[in-house]
Simulated scan of single mutants.
Amino acid sequence: MKLFYAFLSFYCIGFHVYAQKLPDIQTTRLAAPSSVRIDGKNQEWDGFAAENKRTDLLYTLANDDKNFYLAIKATNNETITKIMAGGISFTINTKGKKKDDEGFTVTYPFLARANAANRLGGAGGQNRQRIGQNRVEQTQAQRDSMALVQRKTQLAAIKEIKVSGFKSISDSLVSIYNEYGIKAVGKMDEKGAYIYELAIPFIIMDVDVSEIKAFAYQIKLNGRPEIGNFAMRANAGGGGFRSGGARGGFGGGNVNLARQDLMVATDFWGKYVFQK
């Protein structure tokens, strides 16, 4: 009898773990919580709807009658490095086609290329100078702490959102405090995970909410070739992007393993059915 109960307990635990396994692509439609706030804290979402292996992201898509929402969580250090280097581009194609050039795209966080290189160069140079003078090897905890502080500082300095495809928006860059109703906030939590929330009003996509059925969406980690090359040069010079990350501009990652991925965009497409 004891053996039977032990087996039953093991089966129940295994079934619970299996039931909690998330799909690679979100297939369910969700109504956004009435208390939703775009603040980068991810408190109102009840977990995540999918965990994509290609991009290594947890994410949820939802809507109400006014906005379409995206919530993302990244915990992998190399993935966060890639996000900080080139941002996340989210595309909605209301015609249901897997074509980003015919959709509405929002990219955040967005760092101007010159500014990104300057920040990388400044941080890398300062760290190389300190290491050269003091020759003090940092612990992993110290590197992680420095990387977290640096990422928080970088995100706080971002004041623009990159957009394309919106007929009512003539500029490619808009303020995070824009008049179009686009809201995007990314923050680092205290455990070092990147939390991102986005809201896009249907009204600026020229779609009739009463007629919406389904549309295609794309989530892309852009990467930046020139930042990747700079990182490799910095690393060759004795500082730059090494394991632990705080020695480099964006923190995180073993360059020898992650440099190629940093330089190449990764993405996936899915289909979302509108929740009325």
Rank of each mutant, 00 (worst) to 15 (best):
M188K: 04
M263Y: 12
Y108C: 04
W45Q: 13
G103I: 07
A214M: 11
R135P: 01
L111K: 06
I195G: 04
D144Q: 12
A157Q: 08
P225T: 07
N115Q: 11
C12Q: 09
N115F: 04
G122Q: 04
V149S: 15
K21H: 06
D144K: 12
E190Y: 03
N178S: 12
E226L: 14
A193I: 01
E226P: 07
I219H: 02
T55C: 15
E44S: 15
Y18S: 15
G253R: 01
R247F: 14
A117K: 05
Q26W: 01
F10I: 15
I25L: 11
T266M: 09
N235R: 12
D46L: 10
V149L: 15
K191N: 10
D208K: 09
W45E: 11
Y196D: 08
D100I: 13
I212A: 10
G239R: 00
A246W: 00
Y194I: 12
L70D: 01
Y108E: 03
A62T: 12
I38E: 02
Q138I: 05
K98P: 08
I92D: 00
P201E: 11
A184F: 01
M205E: 00
G181S: 10
A71R: 01
I227N: 03
Q26P: 02
G96Y: 04
L61G: 04
I25E: 03
A141P: 04
E160S: 15
K97Q: 13
D100F: 13
T107C: 07
S145C: 01
F230V: 05
D46Q: 12
A123K: 08
G40W: 01
K183F: 02
M263E: 15
T81F: 02
G87K: 01
A62M: 08
T79M: 09
G86H: 05
R247Q: 15
A117M: 09
G249M: 02
M146D: 13
G253D: 01
M263P: 09
E179N: 13
K213F: 06
S243L: 01
D261L: 15
